[in-house]
Amino acid sequence: MSKRDTTIPEIKESPLFWPARLKGDALLVLDETLIPRKLHYIKVKNTKQAVEVIRQMKTRAFGQFLVVMQTFLLEISNNKTASRDVLLTRIRAVADQLNSSRPTFPFEEVTALVVGWANQAVGQNLDIRTFVPRCIHGYLDGIRARRLERVRKIAEVLKDGDSVLTHCNVSGELAMAAYIAQQQNKHIHFFATETRPYFQGAKLTAWELRRMKADVTLIADNAVGSVMADGLVNKVIVGSDRSCANGDFANKIGTYQIAVLANEFQIPFYVLTQPSDKIKTGKDIPVEIRNPQELLTYLKKKVVSGVVSGFYPGFDVVPHELVTEAIALDTRA
């Protein structure tokens, strides 16, 4: 895999591209809720803490995937003296706990891989302790190379003079593509929606695009129609948390209305996907409804006075007919 990397010199990496890394006996997870104030990594030492960082949205999207994979590495190293059967049981238990952390991201598709490798090790009488980590590291190396490939694909989609609207955050890839585009002397402008209620668009996307010296303008989530109607945007690029066999996908709340507006104003709509056929259509994707207090208050300040209800769906589902092109991660083994 490293060979593939070296064919393309120096893609400048955003911290959000690979937000969780194993170091010593801990998994260091980038606390995305503290950006842009500071770059802080949370030390995760076991499954319980891993579930917490996921549930509290300290990390999201691709970061969740990295946390899940590497939590198994932590647990294998935490159970040095366990027998083979105990370790296998432990791996299954870890998978169960991670699967139930949040509903929309396909955790079980990720954990099933690791459980499968553990079963394979037992079936072939191999040492789980060496076989499973080797599989995990190999898999992560492969994903890393494929994501770098996708960064280059995005850079190809970006044309000189483009003004691109994006929503929430696509985990480093858009910012890194913006950097490549600059190296190619393409002038690209970005609009980032602020992405209530956690402001990932303001705090993460605008921040990482600026770190890459890209030209970025922040807008409110409600200004999407205005910039489209006024012809200020000629492309939309968003990420996705989960894809279906028919091309429907789930992404951060707000994505559906952006897709509908892009369709109305005939603006090409691109989505970065991780293809999967586990779910047939978007109607079958479970969408998380989060605690309304996350919407009704911000750092303990009430958004409106008085006692009102709140409704906070975490994700939208976008039907495939609104997608101009999916920029897919190559998920073939």
Binding site: D221, Q257, S305, V307, V308, G310, Y312
Partner: peptide
Amino acid sequence: CRELLRRKIKPTLIADNMAGFLF
């Protein structure tokens, strides 16, 4: 919200990016 609460009606707040979900 203030006007509705005065009329004893409890509104539900959403963020501006959540309208699409309702539709």
